[in-house]
Amino acid sequence: MINQVLLVAYVLAIIVLSLRLRQGTLSGFVISDRNIMYPAVIGIAFTAAYFSAASFLGGGGYGLVCGFPWTIWAVFLHVFFACMAWLIAPRIWSMAKEYDARTVPQLLERRYKSPGGKVVLAVIMLIMYAIYLVAIYKGCAELFQGLLGVTYVQGLIIAVSIVAVYYVIGGLPAILWISFIQGILMLVGAVLLYGSLLQRGGGMQIWEHIPAAVTSMSGYMMPWEKSLGMAFSISLGLVALPDLLIMIFSARDRRVVRFAGIYGPISIAVYAFCIFSIGVLAYGAFTAEELAPFEKSPDSFIPFVATTLLPPGFDALILLAAISAAMSTISAIVLVTTTSLTSDILRFFRPAISDDRVLLLTRGLGVVLIGVSALLANDMPQGIVPLVSVSMGVIACCVFVPLIFGLYWNGGTGQGFVASLLASFISVVLWHFYSGSVIHPVFIGLICGTVAYVGVSLFTAAPGKEAKGTGHK
């Protein structure tokens, strides 16, 4: 009963907020007219949109299999990239404002004067985000199953309806404010889980019960290189994922972005530290027999901890936190994926189309995207499963190289931009499918993307002077 009441209160709060934050213009819907004036909202919404249910459930349970290398590298790299992302955020905001960019492909198009590059990036985002969306929906539906005792399909329908309502009504302003609230729920959930494990293990005594093999930096059941590669590829997204960058675009001025840089890294540090430690701490709080079933399915470990260690009612809070993690990510991804289709690809082929029509299409196609990905999540095509794990890494690689060079180097050209996109995309996919190496595809994608970008830029720069375009202050 308490679960149903919690869920109803949660949904009501979401609907009321969406209605209050409703926007009638394309700029309002897509980047909130650059009017968000609360650094805490942007900072914490950024964190919520970044961490999905996969991090909450998978990242939490993953330490069971990988041991200390996962905990140490995942926390370290998340905080490192979060700090880096927020230190360069004011420059990104200024560049977006100067070019009046509403989407990330548009920002890079104007930076490099390359409409073709914009379309290539938008197509890569469309494919990769759609694949990732299917995977998150699957997790979200399973969470509703756990929270409400409904079937998988019913869980899926509930998840789809809630996200569709606040996406269509509110756009980015609703996504930001709702993600802010969801982020706070996620932080409370993460701290509760960490605290409950410490308490069960006898405080600091917990470390005495954890086997040395689990705390060895050479890895437990997985080589440390694999944990490092995975942590790197996931956390790189903090600097370059378009669904996070649009949150920076939405700030009213540079000062708001600057101070969001306090809330963002702190919330990421607290969340990552609590969640990624759980798998290792579990060895000090539970017996080996209790943990054995979860070595095969680490995703179901967090719900087990919540129901075993927390008082009734609090376990529902944890599930709600996991659902929040999924929804905040889904909503931001639906927005950037749809705008890449309407604002970037459609506008490229039909430049005369009006803002009002693009807004209508962005709303409508968003719902279509939510519906189609939910249908695919209901019966996930086997072909896309191997791509899920690299989908975010591909997007992060493709955006990272032209974005960072575009901010700090004057020599980049439009051809260099397109070459880096293609090199990153093709090398990651090929390496992922054909190498079988312990080196993560994202490392390869970054190297190939950078070499292609710099090489082609130098080759195509006008003789006697550096390519046009300015580094940003």
Partner: peptide
């Protein structure tokens, strides 16, 4: 006893946050 890598992690996380905040708060040019 908290393992050394975990202690090192806590110290480095605090250091990274502190450096970021110092840079953030000292940017008076905006």
């Amino acid at each position: 006893m908290v393992p050394t890598p975990y202690l090192a992690l806590i110290v480095s996380v605090i250091a990274m946050l502190a450096i970021t905040f110092l840079i953030t708060l000292r940017r008076f040019d905006d």
